[in-house]
Design a protein around this nucleic acid. Structure first.
Lengths: 187, 187
DNA sequence: GTCTATATACTGATAGAC
DNA sequence: GTCTATCAGTATATAGAC
């Protein structure tokens, strides 16, 4: 919408996301964000009415995409093909654009996010996504496999320690391991 | 060692661990801990010389156990049997006594722990443990499987949503899924 | 749209009495 | 071993000038 001088709002989001991820939401002060951008705290309050509204702002987009994904999955048959397609689409979203940064932020700030509305919503969507991944098989083992499938996509960023590996290769490996886990669901 | 009136030190540890896990390390103030125990902040400072020393105190025990586990693994042959035994021993430790609470605390406070010595040490041990789990196979997929194996043990606490399931059953399921992952390493 | 100035409250931590 | 009193620093947030 209104951008004014030059996307100050987006610059705030970018810096906040980076600092929240690096050192944690609580440990990052608005003063720190403002200093990094060479503006004052009060300037931040012009764009966002509170600290946690900054979080909400960059979470909303991701929330919307996950809702679309869940809705899509719900109207597919509960087959292995659907589960594979679902995790594939999820990985595509995870590795595309700015979303990986948002996910890293979530992984790193789980506890704080429990007391933030945006965090509760994300947790809810993750649970539902896991639910779709093991639809038709509500055994405990299936639930665990579904959760680990999502972890596989997330953790490929840090669990795989190889200096010269591309994002595409990381995604490929994550999906390979995810597929193994999914194959054991509902059989 | 010296216990004085009645294990005040242990009571502080217990309450701190609970609050740190529930609402996060940064968000939990010493005032809050003191109030819960009906003592003053200054009383806390008698037992621990800083806030992060409280963390250190209940992490040290766990650190020692992980070192033993890593040392044991290092002198075994790099076979599937060793990997299975290693994750089995790890799960036993995870599900025994007060240690699960400490692990939950770690999962929930990753970011903050990056700036705490105790946290860095724990991260280091987890990496080494994952390293032992995929010794002899340094492919990226193997690294990911090793990390997921540890996740399987950790996440069985919350990923499996079943009201009437015992800890033993959770452990059994975790190890079942872990074994599947381990079987694909080094083959 | 960004500023200065300020309000109010809480933080971790210390000194020293009892 | 626990207290009172207090420190200096920082937090989020607001009011109002420019």
């Amino acid at each position: 919408m209104s951008e004014g001088t030059g996307g100050t709002r987006q610059r705030i989001q970018a810096v906040a996301l980076e600092l929240f991820t690096e050192q944690g939401y609580e440990k990052t002060s608005l003063r720190e964000i403002a200093e990094r951008l060479n503006v004052t705290k009060a300037a931040l309050y012009y764009h966002f009415k509170s600290k946690d509204e900054i979080v909400t702002s960059f979470v909303d987009d991701r929330l919307r995409r996950m809702d679309e994904l869940i809705a899509w999955a719900a109207e597919q048959p509960a087959t292995l093909e659907t589960r594979r397609a679902l995790i594939g689409r999820y990985a595509d979203a995870m590795f595309a654009g700015e979303l990986p940064k948002v996910m890293r932020f979530f992984e790193q700030n789980q506890t704080v996010l429990k007391s933030l509305v945006a965090g509760q919503q994300m947790r809810d969507r993750m649970m539902r996504l896991a639910g779709e991944l093991c639809r038709g098989d509500d055994s405990p083992a299936a639930q665990l496999r579904a959760a680990l499938t999502l972890f596989a996509v997330h953790s490929s960023w840090f669990a795989v320690r190889a200096p010269d590996i591309s994002d595409d290769e990381r995604k490929k490996i994550a999906l390979e391991v995810a597929d193994e886990l999914l194959a054991k669901i509902g059989s």
